[in-house]
Amino acid sequence: MTDQTSFIAVRLDELLRERGMTLTELSDRIGLTLANLSILKTGKAKAIRFSTLEAICRELRCQPGDLLIYSETGGIDQ
C-alpha cells in the first residue's frame, strides 16, 4: 500500500495525561489490547470502531471530538 498522510490527529496521550491514567490501565478497562491502543495513540490506525470510540469516551469521560481532531498542520504519516 502507498503511504498516506492523515490529517486526523489522535489526542489520546493528552487525555490520558489529563486524567492521570496509563495506557495499560485504559487497555484493561476497555478490553482492547495494548498493541492496538498503541497503534491508535501513535496515529498509525487507519480506522476506529464505534465500539472502541464509545469505550474510550466512557472511560476517559470525554467526547469523540476531544479524542479526534482535524489538523492540516499536524498531519500524521501512516
Binding site: M1, L32, A45, K46, Q78
Partner: peptide
C-alpha cells in the same frame, strides 16, 4: 488485500 490492510489498521 486492500480490505485486509484496512482491517489490520482498524482498532
Amino acid at each position: 488485500a486492500a480490505m485486509r490492510d484496512d482491517l489490520e489498521g482498524t482498532v
